[in-house]
Design a binder for these strands. Sequence first.
DNA 1: CAGCATCCGCTTTGATACTG
DNA 2: CAGTATCAAAGCGGATGCTG
Lengths: 212, 212
Amino acid sequence: MRSYGELCPIAKALDVVGDRWTLLIVRELLIKDAARYTDLRNGLPGIATNLLSDRLRQLEEAGVIVSEKAPPPIATTLFRLTRRGLALKPILHELGTWGVPELAGGAETDAFQTHWLAFSMGNGFVDAHPDRPPTTIAIRTGDAPLTLEVADGRVQATQGGVDDADLVVTGDHRIVVDLLLGGIDLDEAVARGLQLEGNVDALERLQPRPRG
Amino acid sequence: MRSYGELCPIAKALDVVGDRWTLLIVRELLIKDAARYTDLRNGLPGIATNLLSDRLRQLEEAGVIVSEKAPPPIATTLFRLTRRGLALKPILHELGTWGVPELAGGAETDAFQTHWLAFSMGNGFVDAHPDRPPTTIAIRTGDAPLTLEVADGRVQATQGGVDDADLVVTGDHRIVVDLLLGGIDLDEAVARGLQLEGNVDALERLQPRPRG
DNA sequence: CAGCATCCGCTTTGATACTG
DNA sequence: CAGTATCAAAGCGGATGCTG
């Protein structure tokens, strides 16, 4: 990206991460910790391979990521955020918070991957009833299962499924996203076809964190 | 901007504000409250006029800004952030926080305007000695004066000058920026030509807020 | 002068094909 | 799997012109 040429921290930050796709690459690495080239491409539907390659090079030059050759048996390169790159997390979380209302205007054909939802659920949610015992919600939608653990007043999202969830939520990803992030209520979600199995009260405990 | 086509709040946010210049326009409006087309152009050195025009239209369509015709005597259009646009402030602040280390690599020819510094000082700084009496620092650099009021444990930056500052700081904007944001110490700033007049202790009270 | 619209050369992006 | 090469289309930057 051509520099804005301004002695301003915001402009300087955008000089580094303001290019198209760049912050979405960072999002992928924040979720996946370490990722191969192909993992990144899969998580960024529509990116051109030359652009991914360019961006990774720029991010490495800027000290945001490192690429490490995995040891011989794996014969691949892994990309990982540096400490500097990890420091981008608050920016991504603020962007995600701000972007939630924009989900409403989404197209039918929008791509969806469960780990994107996991990142959003990992921030900005608290347990509305911290006094109640811990509970586990299994989300079955999209390309992979997702588990929400509600305990100690906090909500933690982890990728992968569990057998002993207190509530299993199954359905089209658009319904699930609207329910968890979009602010529709449970009745509407069920009316649109969401399937619930187990203790429905667990869902009420998910509460967007009040903004500071 | 072409949509990323992802059902992800981060991607949706970037669909709206991810274009080049867009977040810098928001920065200008966050600082200036209401601005004319020309004010914006002055605050965004290097922007092409057609791009500014395009971006303003896009932002208005997205509900981020409104343009209002000022009453007859002024015969101009004013641009202002909506509530939705004001909600972008945390993103800009996080970007600014992250961008501070990038200032070090700045070019000699980078543009500078005092209100950019004001925005940075308006966030992330606390008074290291809240027990001491209020104090006022006048910054004289760049294109306009800047006043820092340190009181009640907080630091407030306002544009404009004052007569009764406890400390007057004068010098090249690069030295001032390095001192206030870049982490060089007072001795180095003075060695590089910074001029101080008044109670120098006031500067010690400016302390970057510990990150959460 | 304020607020654009238009035109043009250049750069970036996107889609696809190809290689070690 | 992990990229590089190619090329058309879109976007950007700079200059200029037009309208109240």
